[in-house]
Design a protein around this nucleic acid. Structure first.
Lengths: 333, 333
DNA sequence: TCACCGACGTGTTACGTATAACTAGGTCCT
DNA sequence: AGGACCTAGTTATACGTAACACGTCGGTGA
C-alpha cells in the first residue's frame, strides 16, 4: 500500500531512527550536547539523510513566533543600484540565518498595494528605502521593527544613510577647482529626502561663491526623460559650463542632449553623475561620478535591523562615498 | 494590568466581537455565506479592523500545508534583465495571491550554498534560470514543482524559453543583407543552454553562405571583460566587419575596444547585442540589438508554475523576440 | 403532533515543531 | 547505605489557523 507522497516529518525521522520526535528535534537543532549520546545523534542524522528530511518552516515559525525573514522595500528595480542593496542585505542576512523578501513598490508589481499582502511571508522586520514612497504609510502603520534607508534622520525610527551631502560637496569642489561658475542642476523628479539633500547641499555650497550661478531642472529617472529635460534646459541662452546630475542615468541623458545640441562633453560642457552604475563607464567619455556602494548600503541596513531585533542600539554613522574623476569633466573653456 | 504587547490573534477578534474563533475564520476567509448572518459578519470585520488584526501566516501555512510562496533562482542580479524577470513573475504571482522570494546564486549571497536554506521560506515551487548553474543540482534533488527558464527543452521538467534561436537568425539576416561576410562572435563565457544556442544557430546560418567566415571569442559578461576580449580578437589581421555579441554589455565593451583600436562604429565595424538593456540606447551610436522582454519572460515562467501547481498542462511556446535596428550596424564598407 | 429543515453558529481537532518538565537507571561521595 | 548528581532520553504541550462534525432553535408541511 503506497503511502501518500508527502514530505517526511520529524516524526518519520524519529520512527526510522527508533527514538522520540523530541530527540530528533534536539539533535537537528544542535541542542543535544549532554542530552543525547553521540551514537544516537548519529543515528538520527543518518535517518534524516536517508529520508531527505527538511524541517517544515511554517511549523517552526509558528512554534518560535518568529520567522527569520525580513522585507526589503525598494522602488522598482530598474537599475542595478537597488539590486546591489538587495544583494548586500541578503548576504548579511544569510550569515545570520535570515532570508530577505523583496517588495518593489507598486508600479512594478500591480494591484496589491499592500506590501504585507504582496510579500506572502510572515515577517520579523522591514527595511525600506525612502524612495518607495507609495508603500511607506502602510509600513509605518504596522508595528514591525523598521529601518529606513536614505531618510531624514530627524524622523523617528532607525535610519541608515549614505553620506550624500559629502558626495555633493566633493562634486562641487571638483568643478569649482576646474574653474566652473555657471551650473545646471539636473535633479530627480522623485519626492525623497535623498534628492532634497542633493539640491540643498549644492545650492548652499554655490551660494558662498561670488559670481556663481545655479539653475535647476527636474526629470524622472530615465535616460529618455533626462534627454528631454536637459535639452530644454541647455537650449536657453544662459551660459552653463557644468551639469550636475542626481543620477548616472540623468547624466547619460544629458550626454545625448548635448550631442543633439552640438555641445561636446567635456570640451564644451562638463557633466557629473551619481551612483557609478555600469552605465558610467560604458558611455564615452567615461562619466565623472560619485561612487555609492550599494552593497555596503544594504549590508549596513541589514546590520541595523538585526541590531534592533536583538534589542541593541544600532550604530549609525553615514556611509562614506567618493568621487570618481573620469573624462566627463575638464577645465572650464 | 497591561497585557504583553503582542499581535492580536483570531481569538482576540472573536472575543471582541462576541463570537467563536471559528466564526472569525469563516468570515475573514470569505466562506461565511449561509453560515453566519450578515450582521454578525459585519461585527467580526469591525472587530478585526479596530484591533488591527492580521492573520498569522505561519499558522495558516502550517494548517493549509501550502505557502503560496515560490522561489525564483537567478544568477546574480547584475543587470536589469533578471530584475525584469523577477518583476514579471512577481506581478503574476501577486494577482494569484502568491509571493516570490529570490535566490541570486551564491556568488552574490555568500556561504549558504543551499538555496532552500538561504531563502528562509516554506515554498510551493521553484522557477530557475539555467544560468544559475551552481544552484541547479540542489534544486533538482528536491521534489518541489520546478519550471526552468531558458533551458534545454529536451531535459525533463517544464521549460519556458525565449525564442533566442530566432533572434540570432534575425541578426544574421540583417547583417548578411547589409553585405557582411566576415564575422566575429563574441560569446558569453557562461555554461548555459541559452548561449550554446546562440553559437550554434549563428554558425549554422553562416555555414550556408558561400565565402562567409566566422571567428569566435569568449568573455565573462561584463563591459571590462568584453573590452579586453574584443580588443584581442580584433587586433588579429583577419578581416572582420561585424561583431555579433551575446549580450549588450559585451557589445558595450566592443565599442570601447573599437575606439581604442581606431575603428569607428558603424563605419568600420558593425556591432550587435542582445537583451536591449538601458545601456543599449545610452551608448553612441545606439546599439542594434535583439529585444528580449524580460518581464514577459518572468510572467510566462510564473504562469507555467501556477499551471503545474494546479495540475494542469502548461502551454509551452517560445516567447517571440525581435531585432531593434539602430545606429550600430550599416552596409559593409 | 411530530419529523424535518434551514439558518446560525460552536466545539474540537490537526498541521509539525521546539522545549519545559519529567523519568529511569547508573555512579560517586560520604 | 543513601542521597546527590549525571546521562540519556521520553512525554506532553502550545503556537494560530481552517474546517469538519455537531448542536440548537424556530418554522413548516403532513
Amino acid at each position: 500500500m503506497p503511502r501518500a507522497r508527502t514530505r517526511p516529518t520529524s516524526r518519520d525521522v524519529a520512527r526510522e531512527a527508533g527514538v522520540s520526535q523530541a530527540a530528533v528535534s534536539l539533535v537537528l537543532g544542535d541542542k543535544w550536547r549532554g542530552r543525547v549520546s553521540e551514537a544516537t545523534a548519529e543515528r538520527v542524522r543518518e535517518a534524516a539523510r536517508t529520508l531527505g528530511y527538511r524541517p517544515n518552516l511554517a511549523a517552526r515559525n509558528l512554534r518560535l513566533g518568529r520567522t527569520r525573514t525580513v522585507l526589503l522595500v525598494v522602488p522598482a528595480l530598474t537599475t542595478e543600484f537597488f539590486a546591489g542593496v538587495y544583494t548586500g542585505a541578503a548576504r548579511v542576512a544569510s550569515r545570520h540565518g535570515f532570508g530577505v523578501v523583496l517588495y518593489p513598490s507598486p508600479e512594478g508589481i500591480g494591484p496589491a498595494r499592500d506590501p504585507f499582502a504582496s510579500a506572502q511571508a510572515a515577517l520579523d522586520g522591514v527595511i525600506a528605502s525612502s524612495m518607495a514612497a507609495e508603500a511607506l504609510s502602510a509600513i509605518r502603520g504596522d508595528q514591525l521593527p523598521l529601518v529606513m534607508l536614505d531618510s531624514d534622520p530627524g524622523a523617528d525610527g532607525v535610519t541608515v544613510n549614505l553620506d550624500i551631502a559629502d558626495g555633493v560637496r566633493q562634486v562641487a569642489e571638483h568643478l569649482l577647482g576646474l574653474g566652473h561658475r555657471h551650473f545646471l542642476h539636473l535633479g530627480a523628479d522623485v519626492p525623497s529626502w535623498t534628492f532634497e539633500v542633493r539640491a540643498r547641499e549644492l545650492e548652499a555650497r554655490l551660494r558662498r561663491v561670488p559670481g556663481a550661478s545655479l539653475r535647476t531642472a527636474r526629470s524622472p529617472i530615465s535616460i529618455k526623460g533626462a534627454e528631454a529635460a536637459a535639452e530644454a534646459a541647455l537650449t536657453s541662452r544662459d551660459r552653463v559650463t557644468a551639469v550636475v546630475c542626481d543620477d548616472d542615468q540623468l547624466a547619460a541623458g544629458t550626454y545625448k542632449a548635448a550631442r543633439r545640441l552640438g555641445l561636446r562633453v567635456p570640451a564644451d560642457l562638463s557633466v557629473t553623475g551619481m551612483d557609478d552604475l555600469a552605465l558610467a563607464t560604458a558611455i564615452d567619455p567615461e562619466l565623472t561620478t560619485v561612487r555609492l556602494d550599494a552593497e555596503l548600503f544594504g549590508e549596513r541596513g541589514m546590520q541595523a535591523l538585526l541590531a534592533v531585533l536583538n534589542g541593541e542600539q544600532p550604530s549609525g554613522t553615514g556611509i562614506p562615498v567618493h568621487l570618481e574623476v573620469r573624462g566627463s569633466t575638464t577645465r572650464v573653456p
